[in-house]
Design a protein around this nucleic acid. Structure first.
Lengths: 212, 212
DNA sequence: TAGATTGTTAATCGATTAACAATC
DNA sequence: TAGATTGTTAATCGATTAACAATC
């Protein structure tokens, strides 16, 4: 698996391939060609082949792609074949909702603890995972070799929390606060309101039937 | 405001401009040039000018952009200057968490009701908004002229819910279920796990310090 | 007026799509 | 072998960036 320089566009399509391949595998499909997959996903077949070939050839001429093998390869590329220890900072509605997501756990994302400043929350448990005071953030990250830090805190606290987590050795940040967190480690900003605003824009500006 | 053909890339930058302009306005800045904004946002100044000029010229040669005016223009483009009646289908953790987001309401998104199939949830209220049985989905949408339908239901129910909402006259769908909902109206798919997978990929594949 | 900065056209870059030889 | 479909190179398309005349 040669991962030289994969463009952001390709990376963002990988989880989508993964989703469709899981579905194909579940319905028992053994093989699929790039053109069949392109029809299902609404992509171009060439693009699909180009994308897969960023990571090495997974197909076979005259046959196409073996669904299970391809799925395993994509899962490996996305590192879904190992566990990612994670914590959630901010035990409010978003933090708690994320903790209840069963899908993440199945995919190897292990949300081990929550952190909050609210003394009424500290000590409680969400889905069996303890809420600690945020004072213990750094030591917990170090002691448990946490990889991913989820920011589900208020906007004003987000950047400082990111800095603290990075200094404690976190490897990546999943940010739900409505600002662009800056960091030396990879950050994924989930801007829910940005997405809602784009929808609102399209509501008024797209002609009927323009969307797939 | 001439909105001819604005590319998806430009549309997705608009909420980001909006966020930064809100901040600039809050800290009392009166004017900003495209190059100053480009430095703050990590974009190219030409791109910023090109983006704004998709919607008409908001600036003034030799001066730059008046922050408040520009903010008002971007808000209008994103239709944040009027109210968007919305409902949430699925009163589980995600649905409830979205209902508790105060930011959306301030921006004109009015989540008026929730819907669920669970009889233990039906009749309860979340933040003052009633949870109805999903049987009443279509009539509620029609009677209250709901624009936006949020899908916070399980994957298996998502597509059928989308179809039902569209047939009842919904104008756009904000989908949190982990599949690509197909629809004749605009859809914004918020794929949380996709975003987490991208982060996991970058964790292993990005060299230190590659991220901004 | 001189200086600054936009609006806009032109150049570049990168991503998508097409084409086809390789090969199962 | 013939047919099918990949892997990969080449062409196209669109988005980003640069340049500069217009103008406040």
């Amino acid at each position: 698996m040669k991962t030289n320089k994969v463009s952001e566009a390709v990376i963002r399509r990988l989880p989508r391939y993964y989703r469709y391949l899981v579905q194909l595998a579940q319905q028992g499909d053994e093989r699929i060609s790039s053109s069949e997959l392109s029809a299902i996903m609404g992509l171009n077949a060439s693009q699909i082949r180009q994308d897969f070939n960023c990571f090495g050839g997974f197909g076979q001429q005259g046959y196409g792609y073996h669904v299970k093998s391809l799925l395993r390869e994509i899962a490996a590329i996305l590192t879904l074949d190992h566990t990612h220890p994670a914590i959630i900072v901010g035990a409010g509605n978003i933090g708690q909702a994320l903790m209840y997501f069963e899908g993440f756990e199945k995919q190897g994302f292990d949300f081990r603890a929550l952190f909050d400043v609210n003394p009424e929350l500290v000590g409680k448990r969400i889905r069996g995972r303890e809420i600690f005071h945020v004072d213990r953030l750094e030591s917990y990250i170090r002691d448990n070799e946490i990889e991913i830090g989820v920011i589900a805190a208020r906007r004003s606290a987000a950047q400082a929390l990111a800095d603290r987590m990075v200094s404690a050795g976190i490897k990546g940040i999943w940010n739900f606060a409505p600002l662009d967190v800056q960091s030396s480690v990879p950050v994924e900003n989930v801007h829910l309101s940005d997405s809602l605003f784009v929808l609102a824009f399209k509501l008024s500006n797209m002609e009927a039937g323009e969307e797939q």
